[in-house]
Design a protein around this nucleic acid. Structure first.
Lengths: 309, 309
DNA sequence: TGACATATACTCAGATTGAGCATTACATCC
DNA sequence: GGATGTAATGCTCAATCTGAGTATATGTCA
């Protein structure tokens, strides 16, 4: 069964080694204060396809492909996760399928013409994740259903409390994946093959909705400590526009002046000198990112209680 | 060339879709205040091997394998990165190889008996990463060589400054991967096929040293916001022991009382009631982790300037 | 008993954060 | 032309968090 070989004694031998490889992309953009994801199959799948050669690496190949498809350069591209679960594709018995997923950010959403992939709002798939206008009504029903599923199992109850911020836990927008997985486990989404509760968002093919949730969670975590939001903005922008973009991604409202303070004490941006030509209210200054600082901050880290002697 | 198929118009078509899949593990433990990694081939390779079926997922298979090999349960296991670069394995022309790497933490290092994989200290491979006893002397030479390589190219100079904390940038322990990549690009490590500067640590086969650097960087970043250090500790431990473990991973000394304050205001641990039976100094209290809190904190996130209305 | 050596407790100033108020600058309506 | 609406920008203030250091407690060992 197993190929003899060059491996050492401590080899990891789990399988026969041949697999079918596939790339799946979560491509995000924010337009009109709405985060969107590129889809195919009438919004029921993420763009994906077999992977092979001709390119020097996965990343390089995917980058070219995206620029071709969207007509926009990809500012940010990062691997999400690689799956190879057996039950994902029952047809393939021997050669199991390996799916490598990526998260990419593009600056603008291309006009939805014929022959073009469609873009759908994140929150069409995850209505419970958008709290910008308050807690959506569907959450109450979700929590009730989950409570029924949990019964008296305290492990389940605790997970629900954490994920949905119940019992004084506080909502954490990063837990998008955990929330989807709870719904899946509880059989509340159609992908789980059981009940189809209305109002729980559009389903997707296979585990694509789970992959999208992974991308959302990753991006939400990342905007807090890496200047990635800029990858979604046009050349120049107002501070409010930037705030609205971050809010759209996080699904939360932010405190205006504190947001501004945070931004400018990081020195990520600088004034262009121009003013925004919007209609209502006092006109705002336009800003642009400071490329050099951005690069430095892209590497910055968090802190340990270091001792300096 | 390309298989016809079920894909939509927006498919990602980069390749023919068949690949050879391989798993690579970065397995870490901390013993005697020294972080170690499991190796094979006399310390020149990470354990790896072909992947196939029999297990429900990559993660599950790898977990079993590790427990079998080390005799210890794996507390923490997380995917690092998936590579599929063409030039990695020149023999395979058609079916390129996909390498999926993982980071795992085990509680103790098994006794190195015959037929057992060996464990090597991280810092044998990356001597410049350990600053617990101050900046190692080799750093001066590294920086000089890198400066020569950079010449007057300001992009390179800037990257060097960030990575090594020069010119008032401050050392960031998380940048282990970037530092290795600089050395690689500059041709200062033997893996790059050019010069072999002595004192720059042991090389590894293929890109295994790069993968190890990825694991180190990931773990260093993670200990700051997730309670993973506990996965490396025995049942009960003193606060100093915990601090020494974190210091070993970070390659830095921490401020003692601030470290303690940080730990106990997070309520991650509780007293066992016992005292440590060590010899020198005042005996310390023994602690254990609080499983439930740990689980909650495992999900905790960082903060945005949220508005509460 | 006294010299170590480490544990644990406390203090304090400076920086960061969450929240809110005040003032400014336009557009538009009457 | 002045009132009104809307958003931009500036400022304040208390609470909390951090970095650094000092003081005291409790063991072992010579």
């Amino acid at each position: 069964m197993m190929p003899p070989g060059t491996w050492q004694r401590a080899d990891i031998r789990l399988a026969t080694g041949i697999a079918q490889a596939e790339l799946i992309a979560v491509l995000a953009a924010v337009t009109d204060e709405e985060p969107r994801v590129m889809t195919v199959a009438a919004g029921q799948a993420l763009p994906s396809g077999p992977f092979v050669s001709s390119h020097r690496s996965l990343q390089a190949g995917l980058r070219d492909w995206i620029e071709q498809q969207t007509g926009h350069p990809v500012g940010f591209l990062e691997q999400l996760y690689t799956f190879a679960d057996r039950d994902r594709d029952p047809e393939l018995a021997e050669a199991r399928r390996i799916s490598i997923s990526y998260l990419g950010l593009v600056r603008e959403q291309p006009a939805p013409g014929a022959d073009r992939p469609e873009w759908h709002g994140w929150y069409e798939y995850f209505p419970w994740e958008d709290r910008r206008a308050g807690v959506p009504p569907v959450v109450e029903r979700i929590v009730a259903e989950l409570a029924a599923w949990a019964g008296s199992k305290s492990g389940r109850r605790q997970r629900i409390d954490y994920a949905f911020g119940l019992n004084g836990q506080g909502w954490n927008e990063d837990l998008a994946l955990q929330r989807y997985e709870l719904l899946y486990e509880a059989g509340l989404v159609p992908e789980a093959g059981r009940r189809d509760l209305p109002g729980l968002g559009l389903p997707m093919r296979g585990d694509h909705r789970r992959i999208l949730a992974t991308g959302i969670a990753r991006l939400r975590a990342k905007i807090k400590y890496r200047p990635v939001a800029f990858e979604l903005m046009p050349e120049s922008f107002t501070l409010l526009r930037l705030q609205r973009t971050v809010e759209a991604l996080a699904g939360l409202r932010l405190h205006k002046s504190n947001f501004r303070r945070q931004i400018d004490q990081q020195e990520l941006i600088e004034e262009t000198g121009e003013m925004a030509a919007e209609t209502r209210g006092r006109p705002a200054m336009l800003y642009r990112y400071r490329a050099t600082v951005l690069e430095a901050r892209a590497l910055a880290g968090t802190r340990l209680p270091i001792s300096r002697n």
